[in-house]
Amino acid sequence: MLGTEPELKETYVKSGEVLLVFNPILDHADRSVQAHNAAECAADQNRFWPLHDVLFEFESQLYGGDVRAVIKELALQVDMDHDQFNQCVDAQTYVERVKAQDQRRRALGIRTRPTIDVNGQLFVGPQPFTVLQTAIQPILE
């Protein structure tokens, strides 16, 4: 959804017509868990979405080295209390939460990444913005 998300935000979220929700998929074992745990730690400071954007932008860096150290380094791009953030990341505060969220999506039968749910209508795999728009626009009219 990375490709279409900026347009979605600018066109519909900004105007208040769309509420965007993020449900983690843990496809890469501990690396995914660490990334999503860190995003939840940023959410403690209302910085989930800024860190979410940074992690997507630099996702290639998450594949190598000490993933926690990489995440802490990337998180410096987000304006927040980094001591608090780092403590949360090291404490693994939200690991169980993100695992439970991942478990729930499995129970819903969602296996492909990304999957987009527009008011219950599922779009499996990467979609161009126009496809999502054809699902959103009729609801708004």
């Binding site: 990375l2 208040g16 965007l20 993020f22 890469h28 999503h36 979405w49 992690l55 990304p114 999957t115």
Partner: peptide
């Protein structure tokens, strides 16, 4: 992210 009362809810199932 956004208006909690928005008429459309888009859920993004994804990994970083």
């Amino acid at each position: 992210l956004g208006n909690p009362d928005a008429p459309v809810v888009v859920v993004d199932y994804s990994d970083f």
